[in-house]
Design a protein around this nucleic acid. Structure first.
Length: 463
RNA sequence: UCCUCGGUAGCUCAGUGGUAGAGCGGUCGGCUGUUAACCGAUUGGUCGUAGGUUCGAAUCCUACCCGGGGAGCCA
């Protein structure tokens, strides 16, 4: 008798077939002479309905052990369901409880729980409908990302998680040390003597693999990273994590135009893949989480993104009859409210804003011919704001050196990054995508802590 | 980090100075193929923590802790 996943049985199981299913009890509905179980094994949102007849040996005792959350193995025969909520169901013949689940103390009820409550039990919450759907969609997103790049001959490169560079230009870093915090060695002048630490110098968790990805792109032409990233910012919002996953493609012989084209094709591919692979989960999000996710996904796949320069965006915002809390003025960064106005009210779709003033962007972004702006691009989406940030990189050694110095940074810290411009430099471009923000955007989940299994945020590393 | 709202039963919440409540869940019983099952009964509390005011505090005051939403920073 073959063991089959629930999704397989729901899709292709036929009456009279023998089948064994293994999973966890979601609900039990008892009637006088028989009972229904719903078994879920994580393979799909819908569970398999199992019918237990009172003629089963030791029926009364059996039912007592079949509580919500218990793990079971059930052998039986598939039959056409008399109910209208499922095509097929399993008539149980033998049943084994692997692990009991005390219903007095098991925290997950059959009814809906708040996401705040579920966050206090990250080890159990994946057994709920919503988190189950989230993590299946998250998996499909991962797969779609690799597929997109691999089909285009991009090399997946593994950039370091521990970095010796404390100046990657993207926020506070978490220190990595092997020192005993009670006995940190000091130099004669009273400074911390990092020469005695594990790596012989200060080290940190990476905030971006971009600089290393650029090095790899200058050998392999097209590469991408997909890995964890860390930020020690004390950000307490529904869109920030201290540990998150980032996707960073980097392309040699590419300009800003090519960068934007790639970003748009990339998002379209992921949405298309999720719509095809996870229709049940997406329908669930549309019904229970956010009634616009399907419409939004269809728009992403079919519509061209709006493209607008920062200068035009500022001019548009200045003319808008919309009250803004923060000032709109050339040279100031766009605030959340401005970004939301552009993509939620004005264009009603994703917007790519390009060519920002050089003062508000990173040193490595390529200086435009006007000398005032850089070849940067941000992809803004409704509700979330910035989901992708990218740029054509500055490939000219002299200008890059000026930009590093102008931002108060030191050339020595970037010696190897500058070498890339000394030896065979080429125009190149890339972008970074916050993976959890992508999953948030696709699923409509309001809080980023609910789209990663074990979220890391300030004061939260329990699991 | 700032602003703001909140913390009362396992969960979601009501109670705003005078005996601690409801719905759901759990348990027990009933029931015609149920599917957020249904019907009946029942169980369940250091009111976030520590001080203070008061004859009396879940309720008023102070501090702290934790959570939600918004902002900044960003992805």
């Amino acid at each position: 008798m073959s063991v089959r996943r629930v999704i397989d049985l729901l899709r292709s199981g036929e009456p009279k077939q023998a089948a064994t299913v293994k999973g966890w009890v979601r609900t039990k509905r008892e009637l006088k002479d028989f009972a229904f179980l719903e078994i879920n094994d994580g393979s799909s949102l819908q569970g398999l309905q199992v019918v237990l007849d009172h003629s089963l040996p030791d029926y009364a005792n059996l039912l007592r052990g079949l509580t919500t959350g218990a793990s079971v193995s059930i052998e039986g025969v598939l039959v056409a369901s008399q109910g209208n909520k499922q095509r097929i169901e399993l008539q149980a013949q033998t049943l084994e409880v692997w692990g009991q689940c005390d219903s007095e103390t098991y925290p997950l009820q059959k009814k809906r729980h708040s996401f705040e409550f579920l966050r206090t039990m990250a080890h159990l919450r994946s057994r709920t409908n919503t988190l189950g759907s989230v993590f299946r969609v998250r998996n499909t997103c991962s797969q779609a990302i690799h597929q997109f790049f691999q089909e285009r001959d991009f090399l997946w490169v593994h950039t370091p998680i521990i970095t010796g560079s404390d100046c990657e230009g993207a926020g506070e870093q978490l220190a990595v040390t092997h020192f005993d915090p009670r006995k940190v060695p000091l130099t004669e002048t009273g400074e911390i003597d990092y020469g005695q630490d594990f790596f012989g110098k200060p080290t940190y968790l990476t905030v971006s693999g971009q600089l290393e990805a650029e090095a790899m792109a200058l050998a392999f032409s097209n590469v991408y990273t997909f890995g964890p990233t860390f930020r020690a910012e004390n950000s307490n919002t529904s869109r920030h994590l201290a540990e998150f996953w980032m996707v960073e493609p980097e392309m040699a012989f590419c300009n800003l135009q090519g960068d934007m084209d790639l970003a748009e094709a990339f998002l379209k591919h992921i949405f298309k893949t999720v719509l095809e692979a996870c229709p049940e989960d997406m329908a669930f999000f549309n019904l229970r989480i956010d009634k616009t996710v399907l419409e939004t996904a269809e728009q992403i796949v079919t519509q061209e993104f709006e493209r607008i320069t920062y200068g035009d965006a500022i001019a548009t915002l200045e003319k808008a009859k919309h009250p803004f809390e923060y000032p709109v003025e050339w040279g100031l960064d766009l605030q959340s409210e401005h970004e939301r106005y552009l993509c939620e009210e004005l264009f009603k779709k994703p917007v790519i804003v390009t060519d920002y003033p050089k003062e508000i962007k990173a040193f490595y972004m390529r200086l435009n011919d006007d000398g005032k702006t850089v070849a940067a691009m941000d992809v803004l989406v409704p509700k979330l704001g910035e989901i992708i940030g990218g740029a054509q990189r500055e490939e000219r050694l002299d200008i890059l050196e000026q930009r590093i110095l102008a931002q108060g940074l030191s050339l020595e810290d970037y010696w190897w990054y500058l070498d890339l411009r000394r030896y065979g430099t080429v125009p190149h471009a890339g972008f970074g995508l916050g993976f959890e923000r992508l999953v948030q955007f696709i699923t409509g989940m309001a809080n980023i802590r609910d789209v990663i299994p074990f979220p890391r945020t300030p004061l939260n590393a329990e699991f």
